[in-house]
Nucleic acid binder design. Structure first.
Lengths: 209, 209
DNA sequence: ACGGTTCTGGAACAAGCAGTCTACAACTCG
DNA sequence: CGAGTTGTAGACTGCTTGTTCCAGAACCGT
């Protein structure tokens, strides 16, 4: 019986995500959101409840896609060591050079982790999940004989988590894509890769710009 | 002839820095600043000009001390390779476990680099300076025979910049000090250290908590 | 002690904010 | 087709924001 909505809820959340990612929670006004989503004031309140609630929807959605993105790559059928290099390269490409839509996950972590307990908890478990995925991938690589079995897999997993967050941060701060890529590939040399691992990775690493 | 000020300008800037670092530019109201600094409304406007101007004072001051902090360590008399490890350890200690006062430099980079050109430019040159300091230190280490002469010093410098920013970001997001330390020390293994370098670094790396 | 200059504290201001209310339009089911 | 329910649009409401104004207090050199 109700009049059907003139907007797609998921689409609205995604537009809100982009807006919040660009100007932050405190820096985004309700009018900004209305303009970005095309919704009428009351429609936003009917559908979501308010600014904070819409933010949390967008934030949780972005967080889980960030976690999923890692998970997808780290559990793919590729050689374990290649999965990690793939993630490093794609992070450099996605976060390089201003243009690309910045991550709300990272922004919310920096802006609100200190003040909002729910955001802080979500960020913390997301990082744990991401770390676990990296770690699992490194264990796979050890079983495949690509990485020294004696290496501390968890230390390496945590390490990649930091490298990739650092790349995102620097990318947002304006560091060029090629520089990010160089950083990512350098980080791989921290891993005690066996001769087999090097063979699987291939020799030439250039050709991304 | 004028009535002397009842506040120390540098002290006010420092208190403002802490406040802005905790709640961000948009998230900090003038009343918050007045409470944090103890100034009267008009005094703040007389002495600094306004909210934005005070923010820039605090931001520029924090940025140059962040750059100086790197520079001081990287040009110290210590063995080059030890300087880098020192910086990694101190970053882990300072940014570990919520409590410690967060960096306004990092926060402003994430919050405002996308919208404020002056902040973006400052952040960009600060990162360049920091990268140059790391690179110079690695070159020193190569001359001292601690790092393979064939390594790409600039790539390694850029890399440490990313690792350390990543550590700061994760620290703010709630990652424990011990974990940050583990990340920092793992990042060192990306460097092609010569036998002499390993000797200079020492063998046991534990005992920080 | 006094005049000039600056600092101080609070009141006042306009603009912008998140959120609410009301009238109307659109659709579905009986 | 029409009654009922829900979405839409925009005016409206307190409240907070950054900033300015004004009157008085504090200090210094003479």
């Amino acid at each position: 019986m109700p009049r059907p909505r003139m907007f797609d809820e998921a689409d609205v959340v995604d537009r809100a995500r982009r807006t919040f990612a660009e100007t932050g929670f405190a820096g985004t006004s309700l009018d900004d959101l209305l303009e970005a989503t095309g919704l009428a004031r009351q429609s936003l309140y009917n559908a979501f409840g308010g600014k904070k609630e819409l933010f949390m929807r967008a934030f949780l959605s972005d967080t889980s896609s960030a976690v999923d993105a890692v998970s997808t790559v780290m559990r793919s059928a590729e050689d374990p060591i290649v999965r990690i290099r793939t993630k490093l390269v794609s992070t450099a490409v996605e976060h390089g050079s201003a243009a690309a839509s910045p991550s709300l996950f990272l922004r919310a972590a920096v802006e609100l982790s200190g003040s909002d307990p729910e955001v802080a908890a979500t960020v913390a478990t997301a990082f744990d999940d991401i770390r676990a995925d990296y770690t699992a991938c490194i264990v796979d690589a050890q079983h495949a004989g690509e990485i020294d079995a004696g290496a501390d897999a968890e230390a390496l997993g945590t390490y990649f988590c930091a490298v990739i967050e650092g790349m995102s941060t620097l990318g947002r701060a304006g560091v060029a894509r090629a520089t990010l890529l160089q950083m990512g590939l350098t980080s791989l040399t921290a891993v005690p890769i066996t001769p087999l691992g090097h063979e699987r990775l291939g020799t030439e690493d250039g050709a991304w710009t």
